[in-house]
Computed example of a mutant assay.
Amino acid sequence: MRFDILTLFPGLFDGYLQQSLLKLAIQNGLVEVNTWDFRQWATDKHQSVDDRPYGGGPGMLIGCQPVYDCVEAVQNEGEQPGQLVMMTPQGRQLDQNLVEELAEYDRLVMLCGRYEGFDERIREGLKPLEISAGDFIANGGEVPAMLVVDTVIRLIPGVLGDETSSKYDSFSHQGLLEHPQYTRPREFRGMSVPDVLLSGNHQEIERWRKEQSLIRTRELRSDLLDQQDELPES
């Protein structure tokens, strides 16, 4: 899968692209990530990309020309154009269902805003899929874009060491939170691993995990249970 990230600060991604699963996925040819600087398409000697908003107000807006030219050039770089995505607080909120939809694309071209955002005509004319990382304001779209990359690559075959891992993540398995998990030692500071996990009875273990997943979801995210069966008593 290919990601093209359009930003004013491509250097923010240098360290991120050299870490953990993403680094391995890139090395193994499963994922390609390219960063592009809007300033490369600026037309004046100062490489200006922003200007004051009409009607007054604080801050600066990223203007149309460098963004349009950048998008058009980047889209022509690949074998086929990608799905254009704009990271914006007004977009569809990122959740696992959306992540699964994004993973179906072969290529995502992601717009990262800064300052007070983009000129409205960028949204109107380019018609990107608008995505929000949550109900908060970040300094720019770069960290939300990293979040999209991080969540999507987990669903690409071959990226995870165990292909079943993503199936049991929170929100992926029946839309519930993940059950508690334990490793060695069996006892730690008066806290013990539940006996059922040491029983070797896989049917009982699966039943316990499902029950704990339901209980945890009820306690921490009851809003996820609208479509779920009635919970067992804890």
Rank of each mutant, 00 (worst) to 15 (best):
D229N: 13
L224M: 08
G140L: 09
Y115E: 01
D95W: 05
L147C: 13
M110G: 00
L126R: 14
S192C: 08
I62T: 10
G91K: 08
E233W: 02
K167M: 12
D119M: 09
L8F: 08
W208L: 07
R114H: 08
R186V: 14
T151R: 15
G63Y: 00
T88C: 13
G117H: 01
Q83S: 04
F136T: 14
E163H: 14
P185L: 01
L111R: 05
Q227G: 00
D150A: 07
R184P: 11
I153R: 06
L220G: 04
P66H: 00
Q212D: 02
R209Q: 06
P58G: 03
K210F: 12
K127D: 14
V148F: 07
I26E: 04
K23I: 05
G11E: 13
E100N: 15
S170G: 06
Q83W: 03
P128G: 11
D135I: 12
I5M: 11
E163P: 15
G190E: 05
N139S: 15
Q96T: 12
W36C: 06
L102E: 03
T151E: 14
G113V: 04
P58V: 04
K23S: 07
D37I: 02
L61C: 02
E72I: 12
Y115R: 01
V143S: 04
E142L: 07
D150N: 09
P89G: 05
E77I: 03
